[in-house]
Simulated assay, not measured.
Amino acid sequence: MTGPRLPARLDGSGRPDALLSTLVAVGAAYRRMAEFSGRRRPPVRAVDRRIPLVVDAVRVEADGVLSLRLTRPDGASLPAWRPGAHLDLTLPSGAVRQYSLCGVPEDLSYYRIAVRRIGSASAEVHALGPGARVSVRGPRNAFPFVAAPAYHFVAGGIGITPILPMVRRAAARGADWRLVYTGRDRASMPFLAELATLAPDRVWVRPDTEFGIPASGAELLAGMAPGAAVYCCGPVPMISGVRVDLAGVGAAVHFERFAPPPIVAGEPFRVVLRRSGHTLDVPAGRSALDVIREVLPDVPYSCRQGFCGTCAVLTPEGERVRICVDRGPAVLEL
């Protein structure tokens, strides 16, 4: 007897076994294809997600408040959005600011934002006229409008901007809803005329000048339907009052502030961006997000309040750091 014939080569390609020979040939062909594909693969290019737009119209909505109607230069449709969404608007100076979409989500021929003039950035927006070219990123949504049997909306001043599309959507669905809209005085409160066309019996306009003092949380929640989803946008004291009074009821509140929460008793710290090679010092009064965006302007973010998770960045250990609010030395995968 003779022993089994050993293959001529260790990979088995010398064996007369037809099946194995076929597998070896297929493997060799796959390796050649992979090598060729690797040589011809184009370099990875950064995706520019900015949308160039033109100011189609500007309108005075209240004292110190303008609305801008933004369209594509070629008139094409814009990306879809849902109530609560916002845009990142790049201003002529290069500054980026977030503004809620306050138009009609079903009409994608334009976007509408409304801006109260309260600082240098908003002054840039107010200086834009019809025909001005701008760019935006988004839409993004850190204030999503969820399905519910009933809604109780609370808006303060310019905080009506994300609430207005929600009110329209709730009305279109035939949902049970109520809006409490407060502000300094009627002249300063935008979109009062639009709200009057919806359902005046469901809207309570409550200017401070007509009541002497700002509304309390309990007053803003008066008449709330049982089990209603509460949506609130406006100044921090108003939101705080609503949240405190809702805590006793056990109801949840969806809210959006005008600006990031202030940094109180902050300490300076250092972050290392491992991939890009930057080492950055974050001052006591600034967030890591603000400092990082000076060297990486495309780093994503949305709410700037720590709850949406858009700006969360991994550390080498796998932890997620919310760079808009978390503070302390860290190495980040950026």
Rank of each mutant, 00 (worst) to 15 (best):
R257Y: 07
V253S: 13
A196I: 00
V203K: 04
V253P: 01
A196S: 15
E317H: 10
L280T: 01
G266Y: 06
A229I: 00
A288G: 11
A193R: 15
E267I: 03
A252S: 13
R304Q: 10
D245E: 15
A222C: 07
L220C: 06
A229E: 10
E210T: 14
G266P: 15
A193M: 05
R202M: 02
V271P: 10
G250V: 00
E267R: 15
L296T: 04
D290L: 00
L192Q: 07
Y231D: 04
A225T: 13
A259R: 15
D290Y: 03
L220E: 06
L296E: 13
R270W: 01
S276W: 04
L273F: 01
S302D: 07
P316I: 00
E256V: 11
A288M: 04
C303F: 12
G212M: 09
A284M: 08
V203T: 05
A265C: 08
M238T: 00
A222E: 14
V236Q: 14
E210N: 12
A284S: 11
F191V: 01
F269K: 05
G217M: 07
P200W: 02
A193C: 02
G277Q: 08
I213V: 05
V203W: 09
R274L: 05
T310R: 15
S276M: 03
V264W: 02
T197C: 10
V272D: 12
V236D: 12
F211G: 06
R286L: 02
W204Q: 04
L192A: 06
P261S: 08
G234H: 14
E294A: 14
E317G: 08
L273P: 11
T310H: 14
F307Y: 10
A284G: 13
A228P: 14
A222Y: 03
G250C: 08
I213W: 13
G248F: 12
P207Y: 11
A251L: 11
D201N: 12
V230H: 05
H278D: 05
V249G: 07
P200L: 05
D201E: 15
I263R: 14
A252Q: 11
A228H: 06
Q305V: 06
L220S: 05
E317S: 15
A265L: 09
R275I: 01
G234R: 11
L280M: 06
T310W: 13
L314D: 12
D281Y: 02
P226G: 07
F255N: 01
S240N: 15
S240D: 15
P283Q: 10
M224G: 02
L296G: 08
G248S: 08
A196R: 15
I239T: 07
P300M: 10
C232M: 06
L280S: 09
A312H: 14
S240K: 15
G309V: 01
A215Q: 13
A218Y: 11
A288W: 01
P300K: 12
V291Y: 05
A218Q: 14
G227M: 04
P300V: 00
G212T: 06
G223F: 12
P283N: 09
D290R: 08
Y301G: 03
P300H: 10
G212D: 03
A312T: 01
F255G: 01
D201I: 00
C233D: 02
